[in-house]
Amino acid sequence: MTHLPKFSAALLHPRYWLTWFGVGLLWLLIQLPYPLLYRLGCGLGHLAHRFMKRRVRITHRNLELCFPEMSEPERQVLLKKNFESVGMGLIETGMAWFWSDKRMARWFDVAGTGMEPVHQLQAQKTGVLLIGIHFLTLEIGARMFGMQAPGIGVYRPNDNPVIDLLQTWGRMRSNKQMIDRKDLKGMIRALKNGEVLWYAPDHDYGRRSSVFVPFFAVDQAATTTGTWMLAKMSKAAVVPFVPRRKPDGKGYELIMLEPEYSPPIHDAETTARWMNGVIEKCIMLAPEQYMWLHRRFKTRPEGMPSRY
């Protein structure tokens, strides 16, 4: 597990000055009232839509692959709303890292099943595999959940040591530990110890340790076998949740879905197919807020052409 990184003088090297300046600017920015931050974030998203042409193309292609029945005008509307969410994601990262608990608590509520099932599992010392999908509200969602039920986050250490320090510090403000996504043994140990483990199985992590199963209208999407291994070896309950941004700057809701106490673990493909169905359900609760700008379908079966 990763303990809180320590600040060192090496992080003040000139090569990191621009990073520190950007973080300082973000810190100043998030002192503004939330309704103003909401408008500002949407505005940044409009700029991103205009200038991030490659990501716009990837987003459009993903929407085209997943929702072939959607008309092109509908797809364009969803794409533009999605980039508003991209802009808000930057603002929400600053909010998640730097806002006080008191200020955070003012702007969200818990919906769906509520936190009671999770608290009951914690009381029983049963591990909780918390399915935290890659929404653009990811950072603020982890903070909101951690304020209700502190747990352990799975992450990829950032190549920039300043960002790595700040993101780990920010995420551990309301959680216990961070663990490298490659540390499977550490994850299983945490779950067996009755911890809540935040885990995101919805990205394309490459051919190794993946199976090809349907995801929306894509019949062969590379999907991690990690869910199967974690659920099978830990006997944890699987709990999906969705951190959804309310419209018009009205804050957030943490939507807790029904826990699955006995997930299907017959084989890796069965679990992956089931997990993708859960992820689809979650995404459709806020499709404009999902991280469509990554190449979800970059890995293809042997000999198949690229989807991009």
Rank of each mutant, 00 (worst) to 15 (best):
W97D: 01
G127K: 06
G186D: 07
A9W: 15
H119T: 12
M52C: 07
Y308D: 07
H46R: 15
V110M: 04
G127W: 04
K81C: 02
P201W: 13
R173A: 04
R171E: 08
F216W: 05
G112N: 08
P214Q: 10
N62I: 05
R189H: 12
L63G: 01
M229Q: 13
L63T: 05
T126L: 04
G249L: 11
T225Y: 01
F215K: 00
L254N: 10
S209F: 14
L32C: 06
P35L: 04
S210H: 12
M233V: 06
E69I: 11
R273K: 15
R295C: 10
M70D: 07
L121G: 01
N193D: 08
S262L: 14
R61Q: 13
P264D: 12
K185I: 15
E69N: 06
R171L: 05
T270D: 02
D248L: 10
P243K: 03
V77K: 15
F145A: 07
L4Q: 13
W20A: 10
G194R: 09
M291H: 14
L79N: 06
L191G: 00
N193L: 05
W17Q: 12
K53S: 12
F212A: 08
D109N: 07
A123S: 09
F21S: 11
A96I: 02
L28N: 01
S100K: 04
A111V: 11
H203W: 07
M172S: 01
M233P: 00
V239D: 00
Q177M: 11
R295N: 14
L165C: 06
S210R: 11
Q289H: 14
H294A: 06
A272N: 02
L230P: 00
P157V: 15
A268K: 15
T299H: 14
K182G: 01
T223L: 08
E64A: 08
L254F: 06
F7A: 11
E280D: 05
E84A: 06
I58V: 15
D183M: 12
R57P: 00
G251S: 09
S210C: 12
F21V: 15
I30L: 01
L47S: 06
Y308Q: 04
G194K: 03
G170P: 05
E195N: 08
E260N: 10
T271S: 09
T225D: 01
I283A: 02
P201R: 03
I265E: 06
N276G: 01
K176Q: 11
P35Y: 03
G22T: 12
K192N: 13
Q124P: 01
